[in-house]
Structure formats: structure tokens, C-alpha cells
Write a protein that binds this DNA or RNA. Sequence first.
DNA 1: TCAGAAACTTGATTTAGATCAAAGTCCGAT
DNA 2: ATCGGACTTTGATCTAAATCAAGTTTCTGA
Lengths: 249, 249
Amino acid sequence: MQINMNTIPKLKTEMRCDSCPIRHRAVCARCDADELSLLDAIKTYRSFSAGDPILWRGEPVEFLASVVSGVATLSKTLEDGRTQMVGLLLPSDFIGRPGRMEIAFDVTATTDVVLCCFDRKPFEKLLMETPHIAQRLMELALDELDAARDWMLLLGRKTAREKIATFIELLERRSNSDAAQRIRTLPLPMTRDQIASYLGLTLETVSRQFSSLKKEGVINFSDRRTLTICDLPALQDATGNDADGGLPA
Amino acid sequence: MQINMNTIPKLKTEMRCDSCPIRHRAVCARCDADELSLLDAIKTYRSFSAGDPILWRGEPVEFLASVVSGVATLSKTLEDGRTQMVGLLLPSDFIGRPGRMEIAFDVTATTDVVLCCFDRKPFEKLLMETPHIAQRLMELALDELDAARDWMLLLGRKTAREKIATFIELLERRSNSDAAQRIRTLPLPMTRDQIASYLGLTLETVSRQFSSLKKEGVINFSDRRTLTICDLPALQDATGNDADGGLPA
DNA sequence: TCAGAAACTTGATTTAGATCAAAGTCCGAT
DNA sequence: ATCGGACTTTGATCTAAATCAAGTTTCTGA
């Protein structure tokens, strides 16, 4: 199944940027109407099914892209096959690095994914000429760096329980669930195995920790991919993070 | 000892950018002579002694800076005191985030450190007007992101031995040692405790792994802060990384 | 020059999570 | 409707690294 971003057919859908779900968070967030139309002119949508590889490590990539919908993962592998997920790509996240064709990890769709892709050459030209795009890209990169550092703390020092609680809290925070709902339901976008890979655990440990949080009434599963947070404060308490968190949004 | 970057006296040394050791790698790397003189006008050197805190988490910072010499660390702490180092700052690395006063980690000097500091306001202005600076800053941020992802793999999946070997190999790679020397000697810029914090281990495990690599003849210590790599291939083999590594430099 | 502290090493013991193993559940395809 | 495989749960056992505990070496400052 040698599908990848370079060979997948382009789908020029009719979606207008105005009504794009990630319009105000993605790399185009700061663009005005004129700038947006420049991006619009070079964009192409591509779709991937759950499980499809999107990019492979070391392979040259002709595109840069924003995730429009769905969830993709970045992962790295040691020579003997141990793998670690090094990033989750959720809607509005950006894929690719200007000025470099190769990436140092594999990108895989874990749910059905739609990408908004930009051909490298014209995008890089636009980047030079459009500070609003360059600035936003920098901001996204720095946000990812912050997230990567949070994850280093998790991987290096948190217990299995804290890792699971942090993961659930992350999904909750990045989901578009109705704000002040006390009981929140969210789809788990990955298998236990993939969650384990993200958290530096084994799938058995992930399963046990889910079971234990469930027994304590902190969470519940209506089905194994659909999670309910029954006690958000207890969950936050279990993350090991400082309670402060900074100013209210 | 409430020393920090905002209160430390500025030392306007006479060093000219031309002869600066990080001229071609730091945020100024792409600047031409004119651009360099703009940076020169707003730069100030600040010195820190080994052990000094440079910045604290959450405190507003009036400066952005490049490391000129010495080694500093970024670290994060959980509420109960467990800490994880989330970055090593070596000469040419950049500190600070345009557009945000606060940082999410502590910065500490582990050796004597000299920073080349830029006042936030004029630097951000310059950033807007000077694509060569903005581009280089983006490149540095993306390099750090790559490094952070490598470290996530290390923290999540490597054994203690692999972590130590990777760490030594990193120091070797980033040191300016004479290129094709078969036996290389390098100073360890940190204590065992700090190394443990960087690698997600305890200091005892760090010590044991050093001892074991020493017994095998892979490394040697002339003094506990001075390391000799006796068998670089064996060391690289012990990192768990792919042998390929990409093109020769 | 020496006392005390900080940094480091090494050994003994414990433990969180990995590994090994066996069922149980769900889902899509015939 | 049911078969087969992918995914998940739970239990038993093992182990790498943490923790606990002495010592030893090196550095610092009086």
C-alpha cells in the first residue's frame, strides 16, 4: 500500500476559506481577505483514511499542509523497532518545514484526515512576501515547541497514571466540546496501542490505567472509543500538573 | 540570591560582532554588515556564574538573547518537585519567544555563561523589518523542535545505557573538537545530578552507566568532569540510533 | 592544612511498569 | 448469522531502574 502525499490524487473541493473550520487558527489565521485569496489559489485538499501513511521519514515532500479535520500522528522508530510518537496533529496543526524537503519522522492518519496542502515552491514564495503568514507559522512552531517540552516532562518524570490523566485532559482541552458542560464526552482518536506509543508506555499499562480511573468514577467508557469525563477536577488532580495554569481564558 | 536577567548589570563589552564566536550560527547568522550593525546597536552582554539562575518560569522577561559561551539548561518541575530538563542551551542557541513575555520553564547557568541580550521592543521591531533575522529565528526554532522530538524518543523508549551514550554523542557532536581526531576529550558541563535530570534518570543510574561504559573501555575519565571517548563507533552503537544518520557533513 | 560540604560511586533492596499469557469483545466480510 | 481477525482486558511473573544506604573523592574556604 504505497500511498503517500505525493501520489495521492488531489481533490480540489469547493470549500471556500471563509467557511473553513480552521480559518482562524491555522497558518492562515492572520491573513486578510487579499492574503487569503493568494493562499486559496495554491491550496489543494487531500484526504486520507484512518490508518493510511501520510509521509515517511526521509522521503522528500513536495507539500506543506494544514490539518483541516481528523487526527494524524508523528512517530520515530529505533533500529530495533521500538517506536515513540512525538506529536499529535489535530485540526489547524501544520505539517512540514519551509526550506527542507525531508522530515525526520513518519506521519500517519489515525482517523480519516483531510489536509489543506500547499505546493512547496509557491508557498515558500508567499512566505517571503507575506509577513502575516510567516509570523503565524513562527507562532505555530513555537507552540509546538512548548508542547514538545511539556511532553518531555511527561515522558521523563510522570507516572503511568499521570500520563493517562494528562492525555485525557489534553484531548478535552483541544476538543471543541461545549464549554461549561460538567460532564464531557469525547471520542478517543486512537487505539490503546497508539496511546501507549504516545505516552511511552505499553498497551497493557494504558488499559490498566483506564480501568483504574474508571473504577474510581473519574471517567467512563460508553464504548471503547468513546470516553466520558465524570469528574474533571479529579482528572486534573491526577495529571501532576500545577493547579494554577495561568490566567483564565 | 534573587539574581536574574532583569536585575543583573549590563556589561557593554567591546566585543565586535565580526569576531564573535557565534557570528555564523546564532540568530544573526544570515545578517549582512548593515543588518549586523543594527543588532550591534541594541545588544548588551550579560554574564552569569555557574549555578546562577538566569530566568524563572512565569516571570516576565524584558530580553531575548543568544548564548555566546557556556552552557545553560531549561527545566520544568512538577508540583511535588520532580524535575525534568527540557533543553540544553549551548553557544549560538537562542532564549526567548517574540511576542510573549513569559516562559514556561526555568533557565539556569550550569557553567559560567555569557549572553548577548537584545531589549525586547527594539528586537521585535527589527524582526519585523529584517527578514534575514526572522528567517534565521524560524530556522533555530525548527531545529530546536527537531531536537525536542529526538529527546522525546530518548525519554520515552531508550534504556539507561542508550540514554547515556546518546548524551555523550550529543556533546561530542556539538563540541568544537578537532574534526577527525580518533580519541576525543570533552568537558562534561554538568553534574551527574543534572545529567540525570536531562535524561529522565536518577544520578545513581547515571553513575553506574558511566562506570559500565568505562569498564568496557568505551570512555574514560581523566577527572570526573573530563571525559575521553576511546571508542566512538562503540559509543554510537550504544545509542540505539539508526546507523545511517544521513549524508556526511 | 584541614574541616566540612558537595559530588560521586557502589552495594542492597524495592517497585512500577514491562513482558508473557490467556480470555473476552467487537466488527467487518463472506 | 457466523467466522476470523483486530483490539482490549486482566492476571501472573519478571526486570530495569528507583530508592535506600554507606562509603569515598574532590573541592572550598577559613
